[in-house]
């Protein structure tokens, strides 16, 4: 498993994708900090404003990291392209190893189930990390400037977390834990997107279809929310970031991730066991 994980994290697609995504999250952080610096300068110039409400809980790490801001299009773009970016580093590896005959070599040396399990873990980790690391980087940069003021429910119109939103109780009571859980969920969805790509390997011989299926799947899910007027947000393209926060509920966020994880494990387990190694 160690070898598989090392392989998944050492290829140039992983590093290049990571670099691009870090570019987006760094831009988002710097833009927010720059905008706040400009606004603060304006306030200092007007002495009278010094006496006004500084709304400290709004100028907090918890309301300015990439999962909570919508001041730049990069936050939307980041969570829009995450399924594709998660699949780029290692989503194609099973496909490549099936085509090259490497899979055949490996299943002769270890059991097929073990090979698929190692592959699944490596694909999941690479997908999760490539999405979560830029988010962590963004949080670190934002934390250099914005203090971690606890959020205040009185200012909830300025945050994306409403009273009944996903993890709202934690957000207002133990915000650092809430932030960690949000990052973990982002990591989880990154992993799931990458493993969806791996599962498609058993159905398609076209590498583009394999790579893009997670994104198309989430795009269609995103549209079905509008089409069927689902009362709760079901699209990770929106609920992972700051979009449509009013209807994001915990059972959907966790349930969907669990369901998709189960589905990919079942697909890969069943199809992988039965499908001939050609």
């Amino acid at each position: 498993m160690k070898t598989e994980i090392r392989k998944s994290l050492s290829g140039w697609p992983f590093w290049l994708t990571l670099l691009i995504l870090c570019g987006m999250t760094i831009y988002s952080a710097l833009f927010i900090i720059h905008s706040d610096l400009e606004a603060s300068t304006r306030i200092v110039r007007k002495v009278v404003d010094l006496e006004s409400n500084p709304m400290l809980s709004v100028k907090s790490l918890y309301s300015n990291w990439i999962g909570a801001e919508w001041m730049t299009p990069f936050s939307t773009l980041f969570f829009f392209v995450f399924p594709l970016c998660a699949a780029i580093p290692y989503g194609l590896s099973l496909y490549q190893e099936r085509r090259s005959g490497y899979m055949g070599q490996m299943v002769l040396r270890e059991t097929r189930a073990r090979y698929l399990l190692n592959k699944y873990v490596a694909v999941f980790l690479s997908g999760g990390l490539v999405i979560a690391v830029p988010v962590v980087l963004n949080i670190m940069i934002i934390a250099l400037y914005f203090p971690a003021h606890a959020p205040d429910l009185n200012y909830d119109i300025y945050t994306t977390v409403k009273a009944f939103s996903f993890g709202s109780k934690l957000y207002y009571e133990i915000p650092w834990l809430y932030l960690m859980i949000r990052v973990a969920v982002i990591f989880w969805y990154g992993g799931v997107a990458a493993t969806v790509s791996m599962a498609v390997t058993f159905f398609s011989r076209n590498r583009f279809v394999i790579l893009f299926t997670p994104m198309l799947f989430f795009l269609l899910l995103n549209y079905s929310y509008t089409l069927f007027q689902v009362p709760y947000e079901i699209s990770p393209l929106r609920f992972l970031g700051s979009g449509n926060v009013y209807y994001v509920v915990t059972p959907i966020v966790i349930g969907e991730a669990l369901f998709l994880s189960f589905l990919t494990i079942a697909f890969i387990g069943l199809r992988g066991r039965k499908k001939d190694v050609l």
Binding site: W70, M71, P73, Y158, Y225, T226, R238, S242, G243, V245
Partner: peptide, 15 residues
């Protein structure tokens, strides 16, 4: 941009 109005991309148009 408005601090109390999150940006939501139009789902059908994007698709």
């Amino acid at each position: 941009f408005s601090p109390d109005q999150p940006f939501l991309f139009p789902a059908l148009w994007v698709l």
